[in-house]
Design a protein around this nucleic acid. Structure first.
Length: 562
RNA sequence: GCGCCUGUAGCUCAGUGGAUAGAGCGUCGGCCUCCGGAGCCGAAAGCGUAGGUUCGAUUCCUAUCAGGCGUACCA
């Protein structure tokens, strides 16, 4: 347990005991103790912790909350003095506020310091296996800003959950099968023949992007006119295989530049080849959940909370994307994951209910599959909203973004906002945006601390062993505010993991940075009384570790100098 | 029409069933004999609207208005 958790647990226990004692003495009447909370008041003058027990007890006890609070506090610590509690106050509508002794805070800091690099981590997740699938963009094109957002959210969430004690795998699902791939092949073929000097029409709904032509050129350089006198089917196949490999490695490379590494690249095609897709249809048929109509095979999704049945196998005998996805998620569960998390663009939200319904129908509880929908990134240029379109030249790739603003600014920018807020991305301001990005503010705090520590080292001053440090010397308001925030880190990580909201870490580290800068302005670290200096150096050190831990989770570098 | 997400400061966004709703940018005003001014301190300014639940609602529920996205034998 971390420091705050432990304290909350103790306070809760103390209050429960007080309530029981009051009941035994006939001062208070209640059947069952309500599930109250010990929270941290946002207002500092309200103490370090506040309990809402008296308010929740009011109805059962037929008594006004402040009166109940008075009875409870009279019992609190009557028998045995408290170790860390300095004062208990009744305030507002009946809050019981706990004010902790100054030593409580500094003992917390010592505890954090002792944890070293591990500070902030926990075993909360108990090593449960979790699979996070994100980006999974079609391998027919390049990654765009929406993918950049998904990658930042997914990878950060994975980092956060790892820090919170989960066993996390990152996965990319490659849609290398189906109609779009066929289409892709026909586009490649047309470009190939055109490059070879033939006047062939380009498929109407083909991939018009220049990257297709470039890929074909690459092939020609390598293999020449080899495919000129081959039948269409084989020509498409060979070109597709070649292009997919190129595209996928380009995607992989772009993501690596972005700091994202996957554990698994899962090919959709393998599900078709292995018969897994057919098998899952059979299974659903045996379950009696399929029906035939208009020559197609439908899943009775309406029996599982959806609006209407969905097609699994088209009249032409080819399974839909949906069917492959069912087989895919079944495969993930079979690999032993307790929880599957998918990060999708909001435009796929219609797919959520049907996938969950299908999973439920084949025996996997819908709640073990979590889909985080992120709202779309809108492109802004010259004050106008525009669709991302290659033809209109308003398509920005991840690689271009990284060239413009760099990895740190890009990742921080995308993970700073909650997934369900829409984002406007201003093309024109891409560069200046980087200077406005709060990531520099946070990194600056890290660099500043580094500089202090380096300077101390230059004067032969290092960190003293913790046993020799008197953290009680940290009594300034700005010091104590900083310590309070530091102690919240383990809680923040767990909250971000449980709520699957990685943006919390960004918000936290910005606040932490602000408190550090404020402390820096108020208190000198070097050249003060030796005992104070030793304690402040350690405070700096713990802050640096906390900032670095957050930045690591965010996939942002923690520079020693800027 | 139906479904999902979102309406919080001039702008971009955090946040919470509680006691005085925060930050950045912008505006205005202060701070460099001193550890990094990419910083600090201060000021003005806000929960779309109407009901309901609750001791207490910006937070939960309903309605309504506004924006976005879905609603394919596309993925």
């Amino acid at each position: 347990m971390n420091w705050l958790e432990e304290t909350r647990y103790e306070l809760k226990k103390d209050l429960c005991a007080a309530a029981e004692a009051a009941r035994a003495a006939g001062e208070l009447n209640f059947e069952t103790l309500p599930d109250f909370v010990i929270e941290r008041p946002r207002e500092k003058s309200h103490g370090d912790f506040a309990a809402n027990l008296a308010m929740l007890l009011a109805r059962q006890a037929h008594m006004a909350p402040p009166k109940i609070a008075a009875i409870l506090t009279a019992r609190l610590y009557a028998e045995q003095p408290a170790q860390w509690v300095d004062a208990v106050e009744i305030a507002g509508a009946g809050f019981i506020n706990f004010r902790m002794k100054p030593e409580w805070l500094t003992a917390g800091l010592a505890d954090a310091a002792a944890r070293g690099e591990k500070f902030g981590e926990s075993e909360f997740g108990g090593g449960q296996k979790v699979n996070i699938e994100f980006v999974s963009a079609n391998p027919t094109g390049e990654l765009h800003l929406g993918n950049a957002r998904g990658a930042a959210i997914g990878d950060t969430l994975a980092n956060v959950m790892q820090a919170a004690g989960y066993d996390v795998d990152r996965e990319y699902y490659i849609n290398d099968a189906g109609k779009q791939i066929e289409n892709f092949g026909l586009s490649l073929e047309a470009r190939y023949l055109q490059q070879m000097g033939q006047d062939v029409p380009f498929p109407e709904d083909g991939y018009h992007g220049e990257d297709i032509t470039n890929t074909v050129r690459g092939y020609i350089e390598q293999e020449g006119d080899k495919l000129l006198n081959v039948e269409t089917k084989l020509r498409c196949e060979i070109l597709t295989r070649y292009a997919l490999e190129k595209k996928i490695s380009a995607i992989r490379e772009a993501l690596e530049h972005y700091g994202v590494k996957y554990d698994t690249w899962f090919s959709e095609q393998t599900l078709h080849d292995s018969g897994a897709v057919r098998a899952v249809v059979e299974q659903m048929k045996d379950d009696g959940n399929l029906l035939e109509q208009d020559g197609a095979i439908w899943f009775a999704a309406d029996k599982y909370g959806c609006e209407k049945p969905e097609v699994l196998v088209r009249a032409n005998g080819i399974p839909t994307y949906y069917t492959a996805d069912i087989a895919y998620h079944k495969n993930k569960f079979e690999r032993g994951y307790v929880k599957l998390i998918n990060i999708w663009g909001a435009d796929h939200h219609g797919h959520v209910a049907r996938l969950k319904g299908a999973m439920q129908s084949i025996g996997y509880p819908a709640e073990n599959l979590e889909v985080i929908l992120m709202q779309l990134v809108r492109l802004f240029s010259g004050g106008e909203i525009m669709r991302m379109s290659k033809r209109a030249g308003t398509y920005v790739t991840l690689e271009e973004l990284l060239e413009e603003v760099g990895r740190d600014a890009a990742r921080f920018f995308f993970v700073m906002r909650s997934a369900d807020s829409q984002m406007d991305f201003d093309l024109d301001l891409a560069k200046s945006q980087s200077m406005d990005n709060p990531v520099y503010y946070v990194q600056y705090a890290h660099a500043r601390i580094n500089s202090i520590v380096a300077q101390a080292a230059g004067q032969g001053i290092g960190l003293l062993p913790l046993a020799d440090v008197d953290f009680g010397r940290l009594g300034e308001e700005s010091e104590r505010d900083l310590i309070r925030k530091l102690l919240e880190l383990p809680d923040e990580v767990v909250q971000a993991a449980v709520k699957e909201e990685p943006h919390r870490i960004a918000a936290y580290v910005m606040e932490l940075g602000a408190l550090f800068h404020s402390f820096y302005g108020n208190c000198r670290v070097l050249g003060v009384e030796p005992e104070v200096q030793a304690a402040r150096l350690w405070l700096c050190q713990v802050t640096r570790m906390a900032v670095a831990k957050c930045l690591q989770m965010l996939g942002v570098s923690a520079p020693e100098k800027m």
